[in-house]
Design a protein around this nucleic acid. Structure first.
Lengths: 194, 194
DNA sequence: TGTGCTGCTTGATGTAAATCAAGTAAATTT
DNA sequence: AAATTTACTTGATTTACATCAAGCAGCACA
């Protein structure tokens, strides 16, 4: 359970974490299992956890006045899930996070996170790298969302996250791209024809 | 020139930086003036600098095959400008950055940045906070871009960055929102009618 | 074996916004 | 001051995409 997390930390920081340091991290993160459709965060409440996904898949989304879901982010093994804004500022979230598959998570609260950042320099560095990557990924997502037509959006998705197409239903992928499921289906057909 | 930067650092970290520590920072950042329309980064080249804007305004944008500009970010006094992906990975950028007004900048290269992060814990903390904020801002931008119709996008802009409406021409604001200048003009009229 | 879900496709219709085009006003250049 | 460019608006037309609606296939479960 923690072994995968340890590997992840080594990899992302290009280091080998010591037993002593990993001890701190292990203490800060609790194991949490979630069944499909269970919620990690409900709109209106403050985000409790920063969650590392060991197994399974999740989605981070909002619901508008008309009841439409808008997925801002997916998460799979080796990804983090949280509403950072809500977690850091301790403000009510406008988002939901739930499990798309049965999940095994490692979760830490905001305080535990701050504590472990102080105790483990490697974890601190990891947090930094993570923010950087997250920042860059979001930048690219903004770019795609502003510049691309729906077929370009889909092609971009197919290129960057080909596994998502197998793993998630098309209506969710459509929501992620900001297009309707029908358009998704039609554009997909059109692309495959080539 | 550096005084504004020093204030900024104090503010964002909620600390008071020592002379000794600020010395390191001052050494890492060079003063750079730019005339309106001058480029800090050209598409295809590797981003040289992380730039702190002391005075003036800039834009970060791409140009598509049809020659249309897509602005992903504006920058004004107290904001940072760079293509982080290109700077950190030292890869060619797909973006341009140029000055919308005459600018005074403080610039550091990637190495200088790494060095000053090592030398100054406060600067390191600042970098961390910055990434966090940047991440959150981009998250919200993704959300707006996926969920909002064009009038909601404009209202969102008016709420979050009211000064931009005075400062930047409408065609650029339209580009930033991912809508056409004509739509911007019409939607704006419609909103003001209320 | 049926009854209802869920996921996906396809066609018909509607609509928001892009594009095209023209014109005015303001700012810059000469 | 005239000429040119840039910024913005307004109307007409087109287009991409959403919405509405129906139908089908696979799966769950009773």
């Amino acid at each position: 359970m923690y072994e995968f997390f340890r590997q992840y930390l080594n990899e992302i920081t290009s280091s080998i974490i010591s037993d002593a340091e990993f001890q701190h991290i292990e203490e800060a993160f609790a194991i949490k299992s979630m069944k499909k459709r269970q919620f990690l965060l409900h709109e209106g409440s403050v985000c409790k956890y920063m969650a590392f996904i060991v197994k399974g898949a999740m989605r981070h989304y909002s619901i508008d006045e008309k009841g439409n879901e808008h997925i801002v982010r997916f998460g799979v093994e080796g990804w983090w899930m949280s509403d950072r804004e809500s977690l850091r500022m301790q403000t009510p979230s406008k988002y939901n996070i739930d499990a798309l598959e049965d999940c095994d998570l490692l979760v830490a609260t905001n305080e535990q996170l701050n504590r472990v950042k102080e105790l483990s320099p490697l974890f601190f560095r990891m947090a930094h790298l993570l923010d950087e990557r997250h920042s860059i990924a979001n930048q690219n997502r903004v770019h795609a969302s502003i510049c691309y037509s729906s077929d370009e959006k889909l092609l971009d998705l197919m290129k960057n996250y080909p596994d998502f197409l197998q793993r998630f239903p098309q209506n969710m992928l459509a929501s992620y791209l900001g297009i309707s499921p029908e358009t998704f289906s039609r554009v997909r057909k059109q692309i495959n024809a080539k």
